[in-house]
Nucleic acid binder design. Sequence first.
RNA 1: GGCGGGGUAGCCAAGUGGUAAGGCAGGGCUCUGCAAAAGCCCCAUUCGUCGGUUCGAUUCCGACCCUCGCCUCCA
Length: 471
Amino acid sequence: MSLKLFNTLSRQVETFAPLDPASRSVRMYCCGPTVHDFAHIGNFRTFVLADLVRRYLEFRGFTTTHVMNITDVEDKIIRRVRETGVRLQEYTSGYTQAFFEDHRTLNCLMPHHVPRATDYIAPIIELIGRLQERGLAYQAADRSVYFSITKYCGCGHRYGQLVAIQADQLRPGERVQNDEYAKESLADFALWKARVPEDGDVYWPSPWGEGRPGWHIECSAMGMALLGPSFDLHLGGEDLVFPHHEDEIAQSEGAGLQAHGAPFVKHWVHGAFLLVEGKKMSKSLGNYHTLRDLLQKGYSGREVRYLLMTAHYRESFNFTLDGLAGARTALARLDECAAKLEERAAGATAAADPVLIEAFSRAMDDDLNVAAAWGGIFDWVREQNRLLADNRMSQDLAAAALAAWRQVSGTLGLVPPSGVEAPAEVVALAQERQAARKAKDFRRSDELRDELKRLGWLVEDTPKGPKLKRA
RNA sequence: GGCGGGGUAGCCAAGUGGUAAGGCAGGGCUCUGCAAAAGCCCCAUUCGUCGGUUCGAUUCCGACCCUCGCCUCCA
């Protein structure tokens, strides 16, 4: 068995393999955040997907080089900079830092490279220059530089690889800017945007005059700079399919740096959108959640991550607060089982239980069918609990089960948090309660249980004596 | 208007041409001084609607209804 993934290029589920089939390394790029504000839960669905893809590839024995860009210059950012009077750098660095904190809170692995657009102005200019040399870019009357789709197609390239696009059926947006009237054709897009007064001091010199990069070009420039002109896997949200990714392909393949016949990217993966409480997330509906909002409501990053990973990435997913509460219960059950296995294994080691590993891989190999994977995991958990309850769980079995669960939970990025030792004061209260119980002073023992609860600890009486758990 | 996803129990969500995984919530029981945890059992004759193909469709085809997304520098 091997991993099969839907490829937006072919609109089919394909066996995933790197461009070099002999290679066990995967070069992957995921479009990162625009740091104009705190990222919201919908943004994070995509980043959790990228993280899961990376972890699963690594689970499958690939090494990965994972790139995620930070878009730190863009219309909305410039508007905020103008409104707040803060310098661009200062404005974006705060949100960039906040983004990485959130990314960490969701237990997403740090990508190997996290390039910022503003650090890649030179390669961007170089790439635009190359497109101009090849006759695919032109400077219009507004001094901006555009990519000519007509010329691109004239060279034998295909525009519309990711979606069926008929240029004449594109409907002009309602917010077409004045400066875009200068384009030769509606579908052409900006590579370099000439400086306008509203840009303030956000501009860079270039052969075409002062200005700033267009949106799509940064991903082409940074992706190719860090991963080479052709790479294996590119991810992003489904809204980026068109025009962003289509334009990225056009620019990158238009530059013609790839080896003959090689594509810019072999495999495109797009994550679907999120609904919140059944509706499109919007500030006016009050269902617009940043990760920070959810943490403030008392949920953990781990719970959010779990919930985001309960549905298939290509289906829109309804994110609800009820769902988050359910995530907490489900995780507690998994952690409880793991803790019992750990106790039973008592430090013994064994090869991972193949039952769990196989159920998990089979589901995940099938286009990352996480829902089916959870089905297998919970079936397995029930079986482990049954063995534990019937006293049929040997130390070796427990060690094997634990080893399997560590692999699986690690791949999902949901390793149980390490247990916190109860402070001496709490232990003393628990001992006092146990003494009261032995003396059949249940009133006193219940008082002590309440007291412990106030301190944030739950006490469970097991056949092996009382156990303390963090509430 | 063009293109592309979806509609499965109270909620979330897999899946299949042969009679519906899993999670959460809910109910019963076992265990427990009581709880908690765990276990066992129950919880969709039914998969948006209507037709068609078939021995048989939730799964294939057609129409319709609803919903979401892209075509706007929104993940």
